[in-house]
Structures are given as C-alpha cells and as structure tokens.
C-alpha cells in the first residue's frame, strides 16, 4: 500500500482527499486505480501528471516499480526551457 499525495488542483477531483492509500506495484497500476476510484482524475492523469517517487520525478516511465513504503506525489508536468 503506497500513500500518494495529490497536488492542490487535483484534490477537489478526488473527493477532497489530499492523501490517498493505493495498493499498487507500479506507477501505471497506481494511476489506473486512481482513475478507477476517482474518474474525474482521468483528464489530468492523461495530460498533465508527473509522478514523484522517493524524490525522483517520472514524467513518462509508468513501469517504475513502487516499494511498499514509497513516498509518492502527483505533480503537474513541468515546463522547461
């Protein structure tokens, strides 16, 4: 079970939950289960999300494994110059 923290803009789309517990072994599984539980998250997850796992930002690699005690944040996809 990983604890995932949402960025502020997502909280209203997830029944005002800031932190959510999800049983997931990879980022892909985590995002899929979040979408199943909170369908309103589908749009942001498809277009805007980056996932921070133990301090490392993942923008694309949804196969990344999640340890039981992983610290996970959903962040907006960053712009760069």
């Amino acid at each position: 079970m990983v604890q995932v923290t949402l960025w502020g803009g997502l909280v209203p789309l997830a029944d005002n939950q800031k932190t959510i517990s999800v049983e997931a072994g990879t980022i892909r599984e985590l995002l899929r289960k979040l979408e199943d539980r909170y369908p309103a998250l589908s749009g942001p997850i498809k277009n805007q999300v980056a996932v921070v796992v133990d301090g490392v930002i993942y923008r694309n690699d949804w196969s990344q494994p999640l340890a039981e005690d992983a610290e996970v944040f959903l962040m907006r996809r960053l712009a760069g110059g």
Binding site: V52, G55, E71, F73
Partner: peptide, 9 residues
C-alpha cells in the same frame, strides 16, 4: 522534505 513536497535523495 522539500518545500514542494517530496523528500530529497
């Protein structure tokens, strides 16, 4: 714990 949330490696 960074000011934007995650803990640094």
């Amino acid at each position: 714990k960074s000011s934007y949330g995650p803990v640094y490696g």
